[in-house]
Simulated scan of single mutants.
Amino acid sequence: MDNISINSLTEFNVAMSEMQRTVPVISSQQKFNAILVAALCVITAGSYVTLSGLLTSQLIEELGWSSLNTTFGITVNMILYGATAPFAIHLMEKYGIKKIVILSLVTLCAGALVCTINSKIIFNLAWGILVGLGCGALTMSFGALFARSWFEKTGLPTGILTASSVTGQFVLLPMWAKLANEFGWRAPLIGCIVLTPAYS
């Protein structure tokens, strides 16, 4: 009985040693680069979130649209913003964070580009579906998953990503408003597209 226990313990120690050798060690530089990229993603998504009101006012002023003309798109956007997160997290866990994040950023970029077309139907569909899905995939649920995947202690990275979300949603809004006033309603959309990181 003792020999069996000793053999089992030895096999367990060998298996654990092999696992430790196969698990890659993440350096501090890699963690810094990863959280920088994640913060840029959250800022990018956040820059779209509060843009609805600004776009609506600009479309009313420049094109003569009414608030009802954008209600459908904004409503769908808000619904998908809240509903997409759990499905996006599931896909990130299944296929990898990087692939789904890149897909989300590309979706945001495509949605903003399509929105620049002067069409009520196209604007509502693009803003509601494409931008809604892209923003919904990069909420703080993504931030929590990222922090848990890359860091043993998640407090600091979660705080950084929360601050990044606020930066994207509110700090950038005055800049988008200034661009809209000077260059028209398409300017903040183009600004968001430019903000989308090159790795998307």
Rank of each mutant, 00 (worst) to 15 (best):
M1F: 13
I6Q: 15
N7P: 11
S8Q: 13
T10Y: 10
E11F: 10
S17A: 15
E18C: 05
V23N: 09
Q29V: 13
Q29R: 11
N33T: 14
I35W: 11
I35P: 08
L36G: 12
L36Q: 11
A38R: 13
A39D: 00
A39T: 02
L40K: 09
V42K: 02
Y48I: 03
V49S: 06
T50D: 00
T56P: 08
S57Q: 15
L59Q: 01
E61W: 00
L63W: 01
L63V: 04
W65R: 05
W65N: 04
S66E: 13
S66V: 14
L68A: 13
T70K: 01
T71G: 06
F72L: 11
F72W: 14
I74P: 01
I74H: 10
V76Q: 00
N77P: 07
Y81H: 14
A85H: 08
A85R: 03
F87H: 10
F87T: 12
F87D: 09
A88L: 05
A88T: 09
I89H: 02
K94G: 06
K94W: 00
Y95K: 13
Y95D: 08
V101R: 04
S104Y: 10
S104G: 14
L105Y: 08
T107N: 07
L113C: 01
C115R: 01
T116M: 15
A126R: 11
G128Y: 05
V131M: 04
C135R: 03
G136M: 11
T139E: 06
M140N: 06
G143K: 09
G143C: 09
G143I: 08
A144V: 11
L145M: 07
F146H: 09
A147W: 08
G155Y: 00
G155N: 09
L156F: 09
G159K: 08
I160H: 07
T162G: 06
A163L: 07
V166G: 10
T167L: 11
G168A: 05
Q169K: 04
Q169F: 07
F170Y: 15
M175D: 01
M175Y: 10
W176I: 02
W176R: 03
A177T: 13
K178R: 10
L179W: 01
A180W: 00
W185V: 00
P188F: 12
C192R: 13
C192W: 09
P197Q: 12
Y199E: 06
S200I: 15
S200P: 13
